[in-house]
Design a protein around this nucleic acid. Structure first.
Lengths: 174, 174
DNA sequence: TGCATTGTAAAGCGATCGTTTTACATTAGT
DNA sequence: ACTAATGTAAAACGATCGCTTTACAATGCA
């Protein structure tokens, strides 16, 4: 494993578990197992590192959402929270922590959320056989709600969202 | 307006807009219009100040949720985002920023989310005429989802959640 | 053999962090 | 008029922030 990947992985873990602002560069160097000089050669800056973490995470997350049905969308979320835990959406948290004032971070978040919104629309259209933006918005809300409610209610929120989405879809079909 | 209220109001505004960690005590003193000595006399510490902000916000928020129907629940959320804007849930954000490692903050968040969960259950029971924990969980997910999706999709997510909740409730009734 | 390349360890940069202190002004109640 | 309370302005506390620098070791390719 090359140093850049090791650094990105360590950074994602720390930023996700303790927050972006609360994670100092010294803890990053220790966790990544490299000197601060090497770290800055690969990271550029703290904000750039966070942006790379988000871009990487977007790739991993969106890869799991390559599905054809709404039900599979929530099944993918169930897998995700089983693997990654329930700490809410790192993208929204990063932007909130920086107040949207760090361009590299704000752009990575905006790109991810736009891709996510588009993907939900596609899956709904494929599953339903036609476009339905209003239903897609509801599915997106359920997805986001399951993600964030899971922080304090646990993974059961994903099952709840999954069941709710099935009802909404059934109704849209008839 | 006494100094404690002025301080709490200024703190809520800054913490909400720029984040807890990103807001320094100097910006707080400036915004609250008082010396740092007076600030610390009323705040105790930064974490205690955040905890008081959250307790205050819980009071204001929960007061709006004293309703009898699920539809009114989402109407209240519509009012809330119109007044307070769409920056996600300050409670979850505070806990995420501190990694849950600040007891005063973690406790304020847990108390709020427990009260919120209980309230949703009560409203669903009142509206439906019977307890329905599974439906209540779905309504909670829709509420939380509307709150967080609104950050990047705008207030329309609340209307979407409201419509979805109406469908789920109608189905539970028949 | 020689010379980039890539890494480490550690000191140090100026700035800012949350918090406390010192010294002094204003006001209200006995 | 005396006192206690409550405020201000500003300096200073040690710690930590993100980031850079200096000095040096190991490696791989010519």
């Amino acid at each position: 494993m090359d140093m850049t990947s090791k650094l990105t992985a360590a950074a994602e873990r720390l930023f996700d578990r303790h927050g972006y602002m609360a994670t100092g560069m010294d803890r990053l160097t220790e966790a990544a197992g490299m000197s601060s000089r090497t770290l800055y050669k690969h990271a550029g800056s703290k904000a750039a590192l966070m942006a790379r973490v988000l871009t990487e995470r977007d790739r991993r997350f969106m890869a799991r959402l390559e599905v054809r049905t709404v039900d599979a969308l929530f099944a993918a979320l169930e897998d995700w929270v089983r693997v990654e835990g329930c700490r809410g959406c790192l993208f929204l948290r990063s932007r909130a922590e920086t107040g949207g004032d760090t361009p590299e971070i704000a752009e990575a978040v905006a790109a991810h959320k736009e891709a996510f919104h588009r993907r939900v629309g596609e899956v709904v259209a494929t599953d339903l056989g036609r476009e339905d933006p209003a239903l897609a918005e509801q599915v997106l809300v359920l997805f986001e709600g399951a993600t964030h409610a899971a922080v304090y209610r646990g993974a059961q929120t994903v099952s709840a969202a999954r069941a709710a989405a099935a009802i909404l879809l059934e109704r849209a079909r008839s």
